[in-house]
Computed example of a mutant assay.
Amino acid sequence: MKVGIDILGGDFAPDANLSGAVLAKNELPSDTTLVLIGDKDQIFSGLSALGANPDDFEIVHAPDVITMHDHPTRAIPQKPNSSIAVGFDLLANKQIDVFASTGNTGAMLVGAIYKVNTIPGIIRPCITSVLPSIDGTQAILLDVGANADCKPDVLYQFAVVGSLYSKHVYGIENPRVALLSIGEEESKGNLLTVATHKLLAESDDLNFVGNIEGRDLFLGKADVVVCDGFTGNIVLKQAEGLYGLLRKRGVKDDEYFNRFNYENYGGTPVLGVKGNVIIGHGISNDIAVKNMIKHAYEVASSGLSAKINEAFN
């Protein structure tokens, strides 16, 4: 398997990305090839500084950078030699099995949709986040920012792709799906959640367990939690903020709250596109990059994209 890594994306590039790649190389199966995409000179000098052998990696020269300030829809065509654009070219041409980046999230979403293409039948691709549960399990929340405005049929599809992700990557045979709302009753919520509840409740393809309230998100009541990207992004940022406050208050050795650290998860797949695309946090350090690469390997190994395509076609 070939895992493509954007070496120039993120706040701490290229150092954190190269260090994370070296760490991941030591933990992945020996038949895995890490393809480092970025400025060739920076990659060689960075690997040398880390004491790593460049021959252990495949290196693809892509000297330009899509920054966090570049416009997502214009960046890829304007910078065809950027690490993100080259990475998507490699993925689209099946020269790599999965492409991972901590770079410009908007550009990654645009590249996933227009370079790799959306799976037929998918209305809108989405991204996820992990919700650590107090019982030791974890749930996935989707969408968390790709789609601020949604309609009921879009949320229904989030439930389907979320269930497939939970089943094939996390090994949960019959994932419990819940809808995030302001009350457990099916009549509670806004027009979107009430209409979505009806669609989910009538489905024979999902293990729908009803509405879930914000206070129950971390109690292990569901394996997949569905919401629009506006709401999901607020939940995600609130959880990150709470973790930061706990650290500032000296809570640093709590086994449960340590699971809120984004470094543990590394990245999230773009669900609903024809290829395997993983987006990491822009502030990722080497540990987060390592875990992003490992998750990229897991997603590609599971054949998740192909299984979603099969489900919708």
Rank of each mutant, 00 (worst) to 15 (best):
8 L>M: 14
8 L>K: 06
10 G>H: 04
10 G>Q: 00
11 D>Y: 03
17 N>C: 11
18 L>G: 06
20 G>E: 14
22 V>E: 07
29 P>S: 10
30 S>K: 15
32 T>S: 03
34 L>W: 15
41 D>H: 10
43 I>Y: 11
43 I>P: 02
46 G>M: 06
50 L>K: 08
51 G>I: 15
52 A>C: 14
55 D>K: 14
57 F>N: 15
58 E>T: 14
59 I>E: 10
62 A>M: 10
62 A>W: 01
62 A>F: 09
68 M>T: 05
68 M>E: 05
79 K>P: 02
80 P>H: 04
80 P>Q: 01
82 S>R: 09
82 S>N: 06
88 F>N: 01
89 D>R: 02
90 L>A: 03
91 L>Q: 11
97 D>A: 08
97 D>L: 05
98 V>W: 10
98 V>E: 07
108 M>R: 13
113 I>P: 13
117 N>S: 08
119 I>M: 04
119 I>V: 08
122 I>N: 01
125 P>V: 02
129 S>E: 03
133 S>L: 05
137 T>Q: 06
139 A>G: 06
141 L>E: 10
146 A>P: 08
149 D>W: 03
151 K>N: 10
153 D>R: 14
159 A>C: 02
160 V>N: 07
163 S>I: 01
167 K>I: 13
169 V>Q: 14
170 Y>K: 15
170 Y>C: 10
176 R>E: 00
177 V>S: 01
177 V>I: 08
180 L>K: 12
185 E>K: 05
189 G>C: 02
190 N>R: 09
192 L>G: 00
196 T>I: 10
201 A>F: 00
202 E>A: 15
205 D>H: 05
207 N>E: 01
212 I>D: 03
214 G>V: 11
224 V>W: 02
224 V>N: 08
233 N>P: 12
234 I>K: 06
236 L>E: 01
245 L>D: 08
245 L>T: 13
248 K>E: 11
250 G>V: 03
250 G>Q: 03
253 D>T: 14
254 D>C: 05
255 E>S: 15
282 G>I: 14
287 I>N: 04
291 N>G: 13
292 M>A: 14
293 I>P: 02
294 K>I: 11
295 H>P: 07
299 V>E: 06
300 A>T: 06
306 A>R: 11
308 I>N: 04
308 I>W: 13
